[in-house]
Each structure stands twice: as C-alpha cells, then as structure tokens.
Design a protein around this nucleic acid. Structure first.
Lengths: 202, 202
DNA sequence: TAGTACATGTAACTCGTTACATGATTCT
DNA sequence: AGAATCATGTAACGAGTTACATGTACTA
C-alpha cells in the first residue's frame, strides 16, 4: 500500500480529480513525493472507491465533466493509520553515485565533471524552487510541512557543497586516498586492458 | 537498462557469482547502490551471457559448484558507455517526508516524534558504518569512490542535524509558520471532523 | 549433527509505466 | 483557427519481487 496511501494523503488536503492528483505529485517532486502516471492513478481511484475509502463528489453541471474525489470516514481512518505506521527507511536511487563509485582511472575525469555540473544545475534550480515555495503566496503548507521543506533545503545545500568540493578535487587532482588492500585498482585496469586489447587485435 | 548496468558495474570490480553480486548490493546499500533479488540477478546474468556481455569463468573443480562471471570486451564497452551517459536525477522515496508533509493538527505529534527518533537511530548506524568503511582495511574503494562516501557522510550528517532541529521544534511547540492563503488548515480539520463525527453517531 | 552460509535457479505475481484513444474548454 | 491545458480512461508491456525448490560445504 504505497500509491494508495499517497493518493489518500493528497486527498486529505482537499478533494481532487485524478488529473489534479498527478499535477500535485509533479509539483511536489522536490524529493518529498514520488511520481505517478495516469495509468496508476485512475484504476487506483476506482479501486479506492470500491473499497469505500473515497467517493466522487456530485458535480451539479459545473461545465467540464470531472470527478472530484473526497475521503470517506473509512478513508480518513485508513489515511491516519498509515500516518501512524513507522515509515520505511528511504529508498534512494542515485545513478550518479553508482557511476562515481565504479569510475576507474582509464576513464576521462572530464566526463565525470560534466555529470557533476549537470547535477549542480538541476540541484540549484530545485533549491531555488524550494526556497521560494513557502512564500509564494499561493501554496498551502502546514506548520509541520514546513519542516520537510527545511529538510529539502538542508539536503540540497549539502549536495551543492559536495559537488563543488568534488569538482575541485577532480580538476586539481587532489582526490582523497582510497583503500585498496588487494591492489585491486591495478588488477582492474589489467583485466580491462587485456579485454579491450585482445579486441583491438582482431 | 538499469539492473543490467548495475551488474556490469559490480563485475567491473572483480569477477563474481550471482550470490556474490547480491551480497555486494546489500553491503553498499548506504544509499549508493540499490537492492536486488536473486529473482532478477540470475535471469539477468543469463541474458547478459546470451548477449555476449559477460561469460562464466571455467572452474577447475574448485570444490563447491559456482559460476564466476567476468566481463567480455563488449561488456567493458557497454559498461563504459553507461558510465559516460548523463545520469538521471536521483529518485528518492522518503515515506517519512510524505507523512510529515501531510501531517495535520489533530494527530498527536508524539507519534511523529517517535518516527523521527526511529529514523535517527538508523541514520546514526549508517553514518557510523560509512565513516568506518574507508578505513576498515578490507573493502576496496577507489579514489573517486571516496568522493561518494564523502557525499553519504555529508547527507547523513545534514539529516541528523535536521532530525534534532525538528524534534526540538515539535517538543517545544516552536514550529515555523506555514503558508495558508485559503485557510486550508481550518477547512481540512472541519472536513475531517465532519467525516469522523458522522461516523461516530451511527 | 544441526544450523548457517554458500550457491543456483524458476514460476507466479504485483506493481507501475507507456502508449494509445478520446474529447471538452480555454487561451492566443 | 490552432495550440495548450484540462480531463478520463484502457490495454499491452516490462521490470522486478516473492515464494518456492534444491543442494553443498563449513562450523559450533
């Protein structure tokens, strides 16, 4: 129960349409929420309705046809039970870190630096957005919600600091010492060179 | 191509068995890599072998039957192409943040504090592990790889700082001001109370 | 000798995405 | 008039997990 909970959580703010829910997720993608496609939202709303957790609010010919969903009493209960459940430890999938941790010395570090610069840009944009958000005059953010924005700020600032540190180290060849008790760097480069060498001879 | 790349990346360190690859992922779960089950690893290794990216090293009756996989020249190429590809922006799924940002005033803050305390413990453990890792005398960490460990340290430290800040604010009722241009907090609590009230009368 | 760690593999299933199909309304 | 945005939905597909099935080797 993960997409379901997210939908209930969004609906706790105010009644919303499926389209609306997607937009909300896009908007708060600053690391707080996670994405969702119509392909999951609409079937899930149907399922939640069948289970009696949400219901569509009657639209009295308000122009455009749309279904505003609202939480039922059971829906509120389910939502709050979920709030009380201890959250799982976050799942982070960071391809940049994966690439960096397997980077080897026969790869040009300039490529890695360009990856870092690209990341820096996105992170800066996100940070700017996150800083403006609580004072943009339109978004609803609760007092406790403000704490999560503070988290995003701290994380993004730490990230920018690290990116600058890293680019610097790479550019000036001042990388920290690694740990290589079995001379693995050497072995790795040999394995690689033998493999690619053999290939070129063909 | 995500699990495939991860497997190739692991194999770039040294030839490994499927079992081994899983262990490696478990070990480096400090936010650098992501989990993987046998159910994906073995079929994927087979597929990579069919595609000529990896090959099993012949075992000359070394006791226990096992298949050590090594990268082929094509496998190295594929791995390095992947390294050069700009990484996607990280995906973060943090249930704690989701819960906090939808927390409302009729929920006991003590429950939220207990969530934060639980998170603090896990984060502290992880930080300790990450700090020891580069000097444990056994793990292989390249120079560039060290930068990723530095990242993990910075992130985890920022997180701990934030957790303490947040618990403090919650305990002493010193939460920051939110932003509520449409009196949504009020509306939310009314919607909720009406829903749950109606329920109790039945 | 019992339990744990090492080791490989498959089948069924769940979850979610992509791509498609459709149409109304609003803005330029 | 045409583009963008609002709006709902489905079918096929893909990625990865869970649970199961099986067996060896080391260690307390």
């Amino acid at each position: 129960m993960s997409i379901e909970s997210s939908i209930l959580a969004i609906l706790s703010f105010w009644p919303s349409t499926g389209y609306n829910i997607k937009a909300e997720f896009e908007h708060k993608a600053a690391g707080l929420y996670w994405g969702m496609s119509y392909g999951s939202i609409y079937p899930k709303l149907k399922k939640l309705e069948e289970e009696g957790l949400v219901y569509p609010i009657e639209q009295e010919e308000e122009g455009r046809k749309k279904k505003l969903y609202e939480l039922t009493p059971k829906g509120w209960e389910e939502f709050e039970n979920w709030l009380r459940l201890p959250p799982a430890y976050p799942i982070i999938r960071d391809e940049l870190l994966m690439k960096m941790s397997t980077w080897h010395e026969d790869m040009e570090s300039s490529v890695l630096i360009s990856h870092l610069l690209k990341r820096k840009e996105t992170t800066e944009d996100l940070l700017e957005f996150v800083k403006d958000w609580p004072t943009n005059g339109i978004s609803y953010i609760s007092k406790v919600g403000m704490l999560t924005i503070r988290y995003a700020e701290l994380r993004l600032e730490a990230e920018l600091k690290w990116i600058e540190e890293s680019i610097n180290a790479l550019e000036n060849n001042q990388l920290p010492k690694g740990q290589d008790p079995n001379r693995n760097t050497e072995k790795l480069l040999t394995r690689r060179r033998e493999a690619t060498q053999g290939e070129k001879e063909k």
